[in-house]
Design a binder for these strands. Sequence first.
DNA 1: TAGGCCCTGGACAACGTTGTCAGGTGAATG
DNA 2: CATTCACCTGACAACGTTGTCCAGGGCCTA
Lengths: 347, 347
Amino acid sequence: MAESSRRLRPEPRYGTRPTMKDVAARAGVGLKTVSRVVNGEPGVTPDTERRVQEAIEALGFRRNDSARVLRKGRTASIGLVIEDLADPFYGPLNRAVEEVARAHGALLINGSSAEDPEREQELVLALCARRVDGLIVVPAGHDHRYLEPEIKAGVATVFVDRPAGRIEADAVLSDSFGGSRAGTAHLVAHGHRRIGFIGDQSTIHTAAERLRGYRAAMADAGLVIEPGWISLGTTDPDRVRESVATMLDAPNPVTAIFAGNNRVTVTAVRVLAGRSRSVALVGFDDIELADLLDPGVTVVAQDAATLGRTAAERLFQRLDGAADAPSRVVLPTRLITRGSGELAPAY
Amino acid sequence: MAESSRRLRPEPRYGTRPTMKDVAARAGVGLKTVSRVVNGEPGVTPDTERRVQEAIEALGFRRNDSARVLRKGRTASIGLVIEDLADPFYGPLNRAVEEVARAHGALLINGSSAEDPEREQELVLALCARRVDGLIVVPAGHDHRYLEPEIKAGVATVFVDRPAGRIEADAVLSDSFGGSRAGTAHLVAHGHRRIGFIGDQSTIHTAAERLRGYRAAMADAGLVIEPGWISLGTTDPDRVRESVATMLDAPNPVTAIFAGNNRVTVTAVRVLAGRSRSVALVGFDDIELADLLDPGVTVVAQDAATLGRTAAERLFQRLDGAADAPSRVVLPTRLITRGSGELAPAY
DNA sequence: TAGGCCCTGGACAACGTTGTCAGGTGAATG
DNA sequence: CATTCACCTGACAACGTTGTCCAGGGCCTA
């Protein structure tokens, strides 16, 4: 029995990594001297340093940052939780965060919440257990009180794209409401009176804000939204396809559609391309090649990279000691007209 | 002096995190008992467990994984180094790797090499210092001997998209050569004799393979490639624009273009859209909305998600002890015809 | 009732690094 | 020549966790 438990002892898969102790032994110096050389601390004779460097080279020594972290308290890594690493919208955001982290000498640990609050929490807490110095989160859930002990313990946290739920925290957002209102108003300005809105689940903050923007623009224009003009729910292509069909095949069909995000826009473009009657379209989020379609797709664009960069910079301000009250930054959106949003009502 | 150095002592930013010792004190039990509860080890009375759980709750304790790693040797995290987190091609790959990692209880640390060998090495070594259990790398450089000590020390490493340079290691690739050959042959089959190739720097393995595929298909068809038909170098839109223009405005212009990757394809589509004469186009890598353009863009598609999943699965096989010789998996590509590749030569 | 066994809980060392501090050597100075 | 001082160097503890091992107590059995 003792034997079998001995066999279970954590055993190196291949070779064992050399430690500073090994390097010290080989170089014939003290442990601390190796540490000094590795960290470029002053107070080491060139000759000693050379001997140590040779030993490091010969043994293939690499400092164990886990031990370092344990001793120093900081990990020089930050966590990024987004909705879906594969979504093209988040690519530039991810990259922007990485660049800022890199500039601060930090590594990036990231994961997808898949729009699942439980998975978000699980991920965030795993990151906290790794003792990331800070967190950037695109929230999936609406209750982030589970983060309170972490934040109290010093984990800087910045929310991006959507605000935190039920706690005070920094947030960097796009102006979903304003952008959506402007996009809808753009359609109104081009003569549309019957405008449909297809968005994501309204539990998602940005989706709700965009819906609110649409409603505001309609109200501004004195237009009443008829039942069936608003479709919320998944961005699943089939559902969206269905929604568009319903709006267009109604006895009194819409003449324009406002699409609530990139995925909806893509599907809407596909559906509209298969129809003869011309329907105006404005989408939230820019999409690649939108300019090459016929007509080009008019969009309300947000700058994902700036979103990420701003959030990361805020995070590092916090890590550098900024202790002011949590702030909310709202970045403007930009209406890019390309044709689809300027089509006149077909009837 | 002693005072100032004392002030420099690593001081917690906010509060200090409770440790198992604190929990033990509060619960009135021993340190190891807390450890047992936290790790779900057997041998703890329900009553004791409850007391410990309460203390954990009350103090907001979260296990420090750094210390755990130090003790256990494994970090349950893997590193992923890709070329550019923002490139839509890598999004699905990234996500696929994450899913596999998640299924194995591992976190993902990732970064972009930005196609810079030095940055790749820097990143990889930083990940090794963090003692990731394994690495998945889209190599930017061509000499990975710097990884030898790491691999010897047990860091499982799988290369993806491109093979490693100067070391033996697992690799998961797409069939760039075959795909490119098939794509070019497709153009030939539609009557083209004068076909241009625009690719990335030929130091990049996939780019070189694709060029080789193009050459092979041309040779298969008994066609001689004329000077000026091949453009290699950056995927910078301006350069690509220029290359396309040169090929089309030559006295004896090409009637079709094979684009070596997604970025080149996008630019080529843009340029061709601005021209009256119809030029056939086949691109390597699928691009979003390619089906909606007029004509639809014919592409040689590779499955980035499968690439990532396969690589990650191989990695975890290694981590689970697989010790067979390094393997090279080559995934097939798929020709998707949408119109642009089926255009007849215009003259 | 005594003996032995199992179950629970805790003391202790170790993981690899860094901060502290003290010792030791050589040169410069009185 | 003695003394100071600057500069190197190394011993040691500590970071928070887990593996090992042992002690004590309750319970069952003979």
